[in-house]
Amino acid sequence: MSETCSCCNSDLTLLDETLAHYAAVPGSLITVLQKAQGIYGYLPADVLRHIAEQMNIPVAKVFGVATFYTQFRFAPVGKYLIMLCQGTACHVNGSLLLEKTIFETLGIKDGETTADGLFTLKNVACLGCCSLSPVMMINDETYGSLTPQKVRDILARLTEEAKKEEMSE
């Protein structure tokens, strides 16, 4: 975990409010981790240690809980987080082919981020939009009834948009 985390100098004060509210509430570790991920975008190792200390929970338990649930990440994600649905309906309608398409287009597999930091791919269990399968969600937008070509088009458009944004900055 620590290899992927080069930043052990997170601003821990950002968590003060959350910890003030939850530190003494029994059973609230998962909620605190969710809030922390909301603040930092992922769970840096020093943040986990800080949470353990403040909540008086062994560090091992905090890491144990954080690594148990798929929602938690231990490395920063790209500008665009691709959540590719691998539910049953999507599987039947060709989600494996989409995963392959993403790999061929961006060179990333499940859990990886592109070198330019633009895209992260995450396979997820059912997103619950089965009637639009196969489906992927990029940041907050859901794309349904996908084909490899549609995926390539969407990725190309987002790359283009990111480039434009960078130019204008």
Binding site: P26, T31, G64, Q71
Partner: peptide, 23 residues
Amino acid sequence: KAGAGAFVCGEETALIESLEGSR
């Protein structure tokens, strides 16, 4: 209580463990 993504938490005793902030 928002879950954090674990299929096994659909099992009632696992769900209770999760509610209590554990694996």
